[in-house]
Nucleic acid binder design. Structure first.
Lengths: 255, 255
DNA sequence: AACGATGTTTCATATAGTGAAACGCAGGTG
DNA sequence: CACCTGCGTTTCACTATATGAAACATCGTT
């Protein structure tokens, strides 16, 4: 049966999860009392787990806490995570919810590169393609990625941009773009209000990894009649949640 | 017996550790073959672990990999780590190896604050005290902590320092201090060559946490006849190793 | 010194975990 | 299309492992 239990494993992880939420470490008897296990059972499990480093004993007061081996296993796992692989299921779900194409992109120098894209069958064909570069200053994703830069690096990038006007709405100055980036920092999401293509609006949010850095941005794009200004907050909420879920997959630890 | 095994736990963690070092996920039969376990045993363990999220199954190709629950447990643990608690055993060991007082300090604005200190019984009494602030520009710890700042923040701090000369060796200019900080970045450790107290030399190295940021510095201080220039590389190696061990405890993931 | 609580160890016993066997399924081949 | 192979999944008789009651060791408190 797929949901068959293994009693010893369940007990061991009950112990681990209890210790993970306990700040000061717990003793054998205390753990047994909180989990309804005999103290000799707890003692045996703790010994086995500490032999492998998943739990550590404080010999001064005979309390146990989570061991470094958890961090090591987690680190091994995080190191080999592939953003696109982790992101895809969440992007698909977002595409289904909003009914519009979803992109994942990163910053490369002063440009945005799309690295993943999900679109449903009967949505309008976006010009965007995986691998395509788009300008930072007039994309929601660009502003989002800029929001993750240090102030110094941001100034450097802003100073190098060309501010080519694509539409009447394109932000054409450093001041305007800086204000937009600050808005992202404040609200947690960015808007492209027909700034790159006439009739196309876009909403994006940042993706973080375990170091707390912005590593990518995820976005929804579509015709202005669908990504209508009245729906901005609603759609932004979906995009932000998707970005948060991807961040969690990448090991981001909430403060 | 303290090293008594719990077979089921050991088998489960063998599976976990195999998956942690396998990039693409493994199937039931493959895991069984590599660990010398029957595939029905492996299947049961995988099911139990995936029910709790410690392992995840890829339903497309029936392979298993480490699950997000490991990252969550690790995150819970890392969030509540206390630097001083984790650092103390390593500081004690360093003090025993070098035979001199060992400090742990952080940056507070433009000053260094000692937050922990270990000294052996018969070492010379340092003026340093826990809680004491010392100037950034003429301490090994100060230069180490400066090395962890962004370029912009570093310039900001360097611009605000007073460069009060404590000894003939004190670095008295922004250029000198910047060069010293760049030396730390390059070599991984910093030297106070009688820059703060006549006759006292000091060697420090940076401590990182799981985000990859410099959160503290650890140092050894002593009389110049003991912390002799001829011993700098040797002592620096010990200090760097101690800082690396503390970093590892704080969840730092090596690249 | 006595007591109480906790941690540690022992060992008889019950049951949880094991693995052999069988079955289901998917992909490859002729 | 039928057959074969390998893998994943499930079943169940059996036994080896994990359990917990009891005893012992240790430590802090009175």
């Amino acid at each position: 049966m797929a949901d068959q239990k293994v009693q010893t494993l369940d007990r061991a992880f009950d112990v681990i999860e209890l210790l993970a939420t306990s700040k000061d470490g717990l003793g054998v008897t205390e753990i047994g009392q909180q989990l309804g296990l005999h103290k000799s059972t707890v003692h045996r499990l703790l010994n086995a787990l500490s032999n492998r480093g998943y739990i550590e004993k404080n010999p001064r007061n005979n309390t146990y806490k989570i061991g470094l081996r958890f961090v090591e296993i987690s680190g091994l796992f995080l190191k080999q995570l592939e953003l696109k692989t982790e992101a895809l299921p969440f992007m698909r779900r977002l595409a289904e919810i909003v009914g519009q194409p979803v992109h994942l992109a990163i910053l490369d120098g002063n440009e945005v590169i799309y690295i993943e894209k999900v679109e449903l069958v009967n949505t309008i064909r976006m010009y965007s393609q995986i691998g395509r570069r788009v300008p930072v200053h007039c994309s929601a994703i660009g502003k989002t990625l800029l929001s993750g830069l240090s102030s110094e690096r941001l100034q450097e990038v802003l100073g190098k941009l060309q501010y080519e006007p694509f539409t009447p709405n394109t932000l054409c100055s450093q001041e305007q773009l800086l204000a937009a980036v600050q808005h992202v920092i404040k609200t947690g999401w960015a808007l492209d209000n027909e700034e790159h293509e006439p009739g196309i609006r876009c909403i994006a949010a940042p993706v973080y990894d375990y170091t707390g850095k912005v590593i990518a941005a995820v976005s929804v794009s579509g015709d202005k009649r669908i990504i209508h200004p009245e729906r901005d907050e609603e759609i932004a909420a979906h995009v932000v949640r998707t970005a948060q879920e991807i961040s969690k997959r990448m090991g981001y630890i909430d403060k």
